[in-house]
Computed example of a mutant assay.
Amino acid sequence: MTLEHARHRLDETIHAPVRFSIVAALAKIDQAEFKAVRDAIEVSDSVLSKQASALEAAGYVRIKKGYVGKRPRTWLSLTPEGRAAFESHLTALREIAGGA
């Protein structure tokens, strides 16, 4: 019988601290404006942009650009795959923290 430690189920894409923070912030809502996420997780525009792009490339985050009046805006949201990956990652973290 082979048992697999929960750490093997951690998602390396989500596990990085800034990406984890982005996904966690988006998990509670449908979508958020770029600036709101930036302020909530306390990073610069360039850091958020780079990490959100990595999450988008993995299929976890959708980045939508548009306008509010004449001002450009960017919105971030989790994809269904991103929500599932985040839940799976949290489950693995809970197992590790619980000593399973």
Rank of each mutant, 00 (worst) to 15 (best):
L26F: 05
A27K: 06
K28I: 10
K28H: 07
I29C: 09
I29D: 05
I29A: 13
D30K: 08
Q31R: 12
E33H: 14
E33P: 12
E33N: 07
F34K: 03
F34V: 03
F34G: 08
K35P: 14
A36G: 13
V37A: 02
V37D: 03
V37N: 05
R38C: 06
D39G: 08
A40I: 07
A40L: 08
E42Q: 15
E42I: 15
E42N: 15
E42W: 13
E42R: 14
V43N: 11
V43T: 11
V43Y: 10
D45T: 13
D45V: 15
D45E: 15
S46W: 11
V47S: 13
V47T: 14
V47L: 05
V47K: 11
V47Q: 14
V47F: 09
L48S: 06
L48D: 12
S49C: 10
Q51N: 12
Q51I: 10
S53G: 10
S53T: 10
L55S: 03
L55Q: 00
L55M: 04
E56P: 04
E56R: 03
A57V: 02
A57S: 03
A57W: 00
A57C: 03
A58D: 00
A58Q: 01
G59M: 02
G59I: 02
Y60R: 01
Y60S: 01
V61S: 04
K64T: 12
K64S: 14
K64Q: 15
K65F: 05
G66Q: 02
G66P: 09
G66M: 01
G66Y: 00
Y67D: 15
Y67W: 09
V68Y: 11
V68I: 11
G69I: 04
K70V: 07
K70R: 13
K70P: 14
P72H: 06
P72M: 07
R73I: 08
R73T: 09
